[in-house]
Design a protein around this nucleic acid. Sequence first.
DNA 1: CCAAGCACCTGACGGC
DNA 2: TGCCGTCAGGTGCTTG
Length: 272
Amino acid sequence: MPELPEVEVIARGLHGTLVGRSIQSVEVPGLTRLSEPADTLVPRIMGCTVKRVYRRAKVLLIEMDDGLSVVFHLKMTGRVVHAVKRTANKHDRIMFNLDDGSQLIFSDMRKFGYIRSFAPGELDTWDFLQRVGPEPLETGAAELADLVRDRKSVIKGLLLNQSVVAGVGNIYADESLFRAGVHPETRGNRLSRARALKLFTELQSVLGQAIAENGSSIRDYVNADGDAGSFQNSFNVYGRKGQQCLTCKTMLKTSKVAGRTSVFCPKCQPKQ
DNA sequence: CCAAGCACCTGACGGC
DNA sequence: TGCCGTCAGGTGCTTG
């Protein structure tokens, strides 16, 4: 579900409210499955005080005072919400009770998401962090363009590949391809230099706008306060299958590219 | 190195 | 109403 902008909005919200809070107790509802067994996670985290909340790729990270890191991947339907008081939800997987009476809750309908902890110094050895590509908002567009120029794979697949560039998912891949006028099946090495530069410039712009608008909410996403985002109102192609292109009125096309449903305008995004 | 298919889950929606 | 197939902001594994 959440891509870079949504996780970024959650991280910023939580950083503002969680820093300095300590974990008094942890609840793990009955049949919950965690990626890390509760009996190793819970003792580790008990009594820890939050030092920083941040994001890398689509991963949410909480750094504790003693150097412990707790990471969440929300996958398709995960939520991390900070609430003063909230009635239990059937999809709640773990609740942290904080020293000011508030709760941090991780819930996930489809159970694809995970939570893991890393002892001080251990985080850097996590294979995900070793593999993941650069942050698109902290890297120059020209440098990003260099990452795909010699690649034979379709550009949509390269955008979605976390080891090429971090944090891009189906929505922002399709939206940036539309804005740059690039067909999703174009091979990386068939993109002109100028077009590749345009693509990554548009990617940065679309990600920045989405963050500014609190992310995109299709069905599940809410930020750390439980509020929906509004960038879905700015979609040009994502979810607009069967509708007209907002630029040229051509009927938008849809096909599976790199295993994911892709929506694009055949006229504005010609094959190259 | 790359692509395709499947797996992990639950729920919403459309068609009959 | 209800049953069935299809689809969903992601990623990892296996196979070819």
